[in-house]
Design a protein around this nucleic acid. Structure first.
Lengths: 257, 257
DNA sequence: ACAAAAGTGTTATCCTTACACCCATGT
DNA sequence: ACATGGGTGTAAGGATAACACTTTTGT
């Protein structure tokens, strides 16, 4: 049996899916300024939601997560990690949620009552470079957009709780996650890296101290300077020393707390 | 509908349970010396496993975890936290595992094929004072014992992976978990606290520095000394300043990383 | 007196913090 | 010349690590 055979979300065939189990993805993007999250707008509704889907009966959960994200947003991932499983009975039982389930059932001819069952959902998070991934909506969605964390629209179900938990986890585990590696392009400036940390930690860091700290940790390769035409000194570009970075993450990088 | 109604594990009635979903508990215990884990020995088999069970259709997952642990070991918990969900297709598919499932099916007259389905399992961890909880096995188990982490017996299915992940998580999140509060009795000595940290971090810490650091953090109440009759100075007893401790955990306590 | 474990002190070193200072560049 | 942002330096204070010293108690 091939456990990794991709299963299309768009054909919802309950017989092929794990019942009662879903996956929701919190995709963090970074654009040199703000931390963003990828959200989908459902067809014909003013409702935004996280990209999510279901798990094939013969599909590893991690692989399902990768597939779901790819199908729903067109993004293939460098990094995807489970962070929490949401198991409250009434996590999607307010009246608005029920309306939407009903609407979707009809619109997409999803087998009756499949969406109505109780779901326990596992949240996955990822960190990607916004400038290198152009999300494109699937047929269930009207659009697929990056929204700044600071001004998210209302989200369906308990998706706001899921986002909050993802943020909390990313902060707790900041010293153990390959934040920079995934959220930044191949080459980046020290300022880019600092702004990324500031976005995640939600506070300002001292420029000089940040620079010295990062350099001392020794996982950055300094490349040639690149002059952008701006009216000031050209910044160095950096790339990650991959093996050194991985080694440090295992121990937990001692960033400013 | 009452979402919190306890559902007996011992009556396995598939119609009342979430299919394909289970819970496994990694219960850490501490006895002033070693870090232990609670394991069950299955009836009539030489196999050890983590205490686990299933989730009622109208039961919150967190509440199911509490119930399962209580039913299977007799322990009621001060603290129980989800740490990972295990979703590999073949997590319990080696031949020994299948034998055991077959054996259990027959012995306990569990509805046919219930145990044979694919399960995705959420791991919960807890930290308890070994001296204050006397685990007692349920009827599925021959015994229920504490085993030192350093010399665990072979475990069924992927339970060893689950234990390893729990340990990894407890180390990564050590500054955010109420380690001491749950694993130690009401009153304890500084030595107790230090040995606990040493067990979890798996390395020695300097006695003098540890003492000073903990005192400076300010979440310990120093109580009267208690003389035990040993041939040396009597140590102070301490208790936790609960509100101060909670506040610090939110920020992340800066223990020696 | 001695061993054992608790409590505290000392010192060198390192890290963090808050700045200040100079450099390169376009206007 | 000046504003802007990049790179580096410095000095005070705090934290860490290694180890020494003193105290209490039973033998």
């Amino acid at each position: 049996m091939d456990h990794n055979k991709p299963i299309s979300f768009l054909k919802i065939v309950p017989a092929d899916l794990m019942p009662g189990l879903s996956i929701d993805c919190v995709i963090f993007g970074f654009d040199r300024k703000d931390l963003n999250i990828l959200v989908l707008k459902w067809q014909g509704l003013d409702s935004w939601a996280l990209p999510g889907g279901f798990i094939g009966k013969d599909e590893d959960m991690d692989i399902a997560a990768t597939r779901i994200l790819e199908e729903r947003t067109g993004i293939s991932l460098p990094y995807l990690r489970q962070f929490h499983t949401f198991g409250k009975v009434n996590r999607r039982n307010n009246s608005q949620d029920l309306d939407i389930i009903d609407h979707s059932n009809k619109k997409f001819a999803i087998p009756i009552r499949w969406l109505e069952q109780r779901f326990i959902s596992t949240g996955y998070l990822s960190l990607v470079d916004m400038r290198q991934s152009k999300p494109t909506p699937d047929i269930l969605s009207e659009s697929c957009q990056w929204k700044p964390v600071k001004e998210l629209p209302e989200l369906l179900f308990d998706h706001m709780d899921i986002v909050k938990k993802a943020l909390e986890q990313i902060r707790i585990q900041i010293n153990h996650l390959p934040i920079g590696l995934s959220l930044l392009p191949e080459k980046f400036t020290m300022k880019d890296l600092q702004m990324l940390y500031e976005s995640i930690l939600n506070r300002d860091l001292d420029r000089g101290n940040f620079q010295k700290k990062m350099l001392k940790l020794g996982f950055l390769n300094r490349l040639e300077k690149q002059h952008t035409g701006a009216s000031h000194k050209a910044p160095y570009l950096y790339s990650f020393n991959r093996s050194r970075y991985d080694a440090l993450l295992n121990q937990g990088i001692g960033y400013m707390s």
